[in-house]
Amino acid sequence: MSSKPKVAFYWNASCGGCEEAVVDLAEDILQVVEAVDIVFWPVALDFKKKDVEAMDDGEIAVSFINGAIRTDEQREMVELLRRKSGLVVAFGSCAHIGGIPGLANFYNRELIFDRAYRTVPSTPNPDGVLPRTSSDIDDDELTLPEFWDTVKTLDQVIDVDYYLPGCAPPPDLIMDAVTAILEANLPEKGTVLAPRKNLCDTCPRSESKPDKISIESLKRPYEIEADPEKCFLEEGIICLGMSTRSGCGERCINANMPCRGCFGPAEEVFDQGAKGLSAIASILGLEKEEELTDEDIERLIDRIPDLAGLFYMYSLPSSLLRRKKL
């Protein structure tokens, strides 16, 4: 029997990008495979739930779990993995703070089903059939897991030891985390395994950023060709680097796209969306702010539709409000 530490990977409400991130470790993955035994990884290996059930409690050294939680089946699986694992790492934005699937918290099951199965033009469904937890087909019962009204982060469902942020987490942070686990050199429980700085502190554009920026007109990224040397805010494009944790390797910034917050709140930020909103509102029309009427301010703000979706793009389930009450 192998004495290597056992590792599991699991996915929930996610896009598959986190699985891709593991594969993106390239040659480094060989080191990982050398050092550990992967005992469960539905996307790549043929182990089943019953194999996990057959293990002793705590037998898996660490489970890396990606995706938000929004069905009964996902809860059952993460509860099982929690029992069987010494450590659980919330892997990626969706497990950490809710991620893009978390935007569904502006709706509920009924509204989502109605859109996805009835009113969306690309889904012909003349009988208006909706997913059900149980259906009888030719005397057989077919079941589907219950779909929740609310998307939750992993730590709202099970106890989580560490967080690896990002959409998806970058290879260097994954390798740092794996190495720290293998060497038993881990920080305090609950730590986000990424730098403590915010993105603006490490952004290559911050050097040329003027001390004072005043946004005279907000722009959406497609409306202008952004200067790759300038801070996005100078050009009126909302960038959430001030409220977001660094560590992503500035991948979006280097691709000339503004930050949308996938690394979660910077240290000491309680509500990433509210903090981002506050930072942007403060510099809106800053130059002549004394002269602005309330109506002028509204006009400046109204250039951007769906501000809540923008400021809470990745963090709605972990925000103070958590969802819209319908």
Binding site: F106, G273, A274, L277, S278, I280, A281, S282, L284, G285, E289, L292, D294, I297, E298, I301, D302, D306, L307, A308, G309, F311, L321, R323, K324, K325
Partner: peptide, 16 residues
């Protein structure tokens, strides 16, 4: 600053 933040906050919270 707060006047601008509150006006923006009103719009964001309306979506909630």
């Amino acid at each position: 600053k707060t006047r601008k933040r509150f006006i923006m906050l009103r719009k964001v919270l309306e979506e909630f």
